[in-house]
Write a protein that binds this DNA or RNA. Sequence first.
DNA 1: AATAATAGTGCCGTAAAATGCACTTTGCAC
DNA 2: GTGCAAAGTGCATTTTACGGCACTATTATT
Lengths: 72, 72
Amino acid sequence: MHFSELIKTIKERREVLQVTQQGLADLSGVGLRTLKQFESGKGNPTLLTLQKMADVLGMEVYLKIKNGTPNK
Amino acid sequence: MHFSELIKTIKERREVLQVTQQGLADLSGVGLRTLKQFESGKGNPTLLTLQKMADVLGMEVYLKIKNGTPNK
DNA sequence: AATAATAGTGCCGTAAAATGCACTTTGCAC
DNA sequence: GTGCAAAGTGCATTTTACGGCACTATTATT
């Protein structure tokens, strides 16, 4: 997933769950400013920050082997 | 995936592909020091850094819905 | 159109990530 | 145990994420 896809995923998920940025900020412990920055595509969050956000949204950060990749 | 799992995944993948930290650093453009720090569990990489590493290893960062999560 | 709620941005201080360099430690051959 | 390669660590610097605050912009509701 590219950066923009990750953003879109988080954003959409948040909206589906009907949580505002403020709400997610409160629940996740991530600063509102940081959240806004990320969702508006102007951030490069640390893994920890991303995990905090994902966690509250019932998601998790995953490392997936790309399909088409010669597996060794 | 927790932090330690992500680290383990990257590390193992790197070893399977028989790439050294130095090699991965060169290929990914991530600093060697940063790589070492991450693999030894003492870092909190930015999403961009993680993506660079994953990319070279034929992997990608993914956001997955946790199973057991009420999908609304 | 006025209001209210939600989202985006500028400014800015603080904390931490990214990185290089040099050194130590570890692991594995021979 | 010597030697070499790979991995880990301490130190210092530069860059940048984090986060608060205040303000603007957008969107929805009445």
